[in-house]
Amino acid sequence: MTATKALDMLFGHSATTGDITVRVAVNYLAEQSAPGEDRWFWSYHIRIENKGKGPVQLLGRRWLILDGRGIASEVIGEGVVGDMPVIAPGSSYDYVSGCPLATPTGSMEGSYQMVAENGDAFEVEIPKFPLQGPAV
């Protein structure tokens, strides 16, 4: 099995923009959810891979979160999990975060705002991924 196939199995969702690939693995967390109180919680693991020739820095993020009723929320902010990582060529940056919803299903997608070593700013796609709670 190739390394790329193994990553595709671990991270079920990916998108590539230029030399940057964003991979996502998502997990429903039953122990942090309370369906009787309309609260479902997921963790997501993001890996950002730099396949370019120079370093890039992640400056910000924009998330579009859609719940099971079709209600959208937008989250815009600096960095990720309190960090504005510089990702060297040929390396990656991983982080884990979470998302609560008031419905047992939904989805997330978005983009990262990044800057190259030469100062050029660019946007990188975060692939859409489903948030699915236990079978009802």
Rank of each mutant, 00 (worst) to 15 (best):
Thr2Ser: 12
Thr2Glu: 10
Thr2Leu: 07
Ala3Asn: 07
Ala3Leu: 15
Ala3Ser: 07
Thr4Ala: 09
Thr4Val: 11
Thr4Cys: 02
Lys5Ile: 03
Lys5His: 04
Lys5Met: 04
Lys5Arg: 09
Ala6Pro: 01
Ala6Asn: 06
Asp8Tyr: 14
Met9Asn: 08
Phe11Leu: 12
Phe11Tyr: 15
Gly12Asn: 06
Gly12Glu: 10
Gly12Val: 01
Gly12Trp: 01
Gly12His: 05
His13Phe: 14
Ser14His: 09
Thr17Asn: 05
Gly18Pro: 04
Gly18Phe: 03
Asp19Leu: 05
Asp19Ser: 13
Ile20Trp: 08
Ile20Tyr: 07
Val22Ala: 12
Val22Lys: 07
Arg23Pro: 05
Val24Ala: 02
Ala25Phe: 01
Ala25Cys: 05
Ala25Leu: 04
Val26Cys: 05
Tyr28Asn: 07
Leu29Val: 15
Leu29Phe: 00
Ala30Ser: 10
Glu31Thr: 08
Ser33Glu: 03
Ala34Cys: 04
Pro35Ile: 03
Pro35Lys: 05
Gly36Ser: 08
Gly36Gln: 06
Glu37Tyr: 06
Asp38Ile: 04
Asp38Glu: 13
Asp38Phe: 09
Asp38Thr: 11
Tyr44Ile: 02
Tyr44Ala: 03
Tyr44Met: 06
His45Cys: 01
Ile46Pro: 02
Arg47Leu: 13
Ile48Phe: 06
Glu49Ala: 12
Asn50Met: 11
Asn50Cys: 11
Gly52His: 10
Gly52Pro: 08
Gly54Leu: 07
Pro55Arg: 14
Leu59Asp: 09
Gly60Phe: 06
Arg62Thr: 06
Arg62His: 11
Trp63Ile: 15
Ile65Lys: 05
Ile65Leu: 09
Leu66Gln: 13
Asp67Arg: 13
Asp67Lys: 14
Asp67Leu: 14
Arg69Tyr: 05
Arg69Asn: 14
Gly70Cys: 10
Ile71Lys: 15
Ser73Lys: 15
Ser73Gln: 14
Glu74Gly: 09
Glu74His: 09
Val75Gly: 04
Val75Leu: 12
Ile76His: 10
Gly77Val: 05
Glu78Asn: 13
Glu78Gln: 14
Glu78Met: 11
Gly79Val: 02
Val81Thr: 13
Ile87Thr: 14
Ile87Glu: 15
Ile87His: 14
Ala88Ile: 02
Ala88Ser: 11
Ala88Val: 04
Pro89Phe: 12
Pro89Thr: 12
Gly90Trp: 10
Val96Ala: 08
Cys99Ile: 02
Cys99Arg: 02
Pro100Ile: 12
Pro104Leu: 00
Pro104Ile: 00
Thr105Glu: 01
Gly106Glu: 06
Ser107Lys: 00
Ser107Val: 00
Gly110Asp: 05
Gly110Trp: 04
Gly110Asn: 04
Gly110Gln: 09
Ser111Ala: 12
Ser111His: 08
Tyr112Ile: 12
Ala116Ile: 03
Gly119Cys: 12
Asp120Asn: 08
Asp120Trp: 01
Ala121Ile: 11
Glu123Val: 12
Val124Asn: 13
Val124Asp: 09
Ile126Tyr: 02
Ile126Pro: 01
Pro127Cys: 08
Pro127Leu: 03
Pro127His: 01
Lys128Pro: 06
Phe129Trp: 08
Pro130Cys: 00
Leu131Asp: 00
Gly133Arg: 05
Pro134Ile: 02
Pro134Gly: 03
Val136Met: 05
Val136Glu: 09
Val136Ala: 11
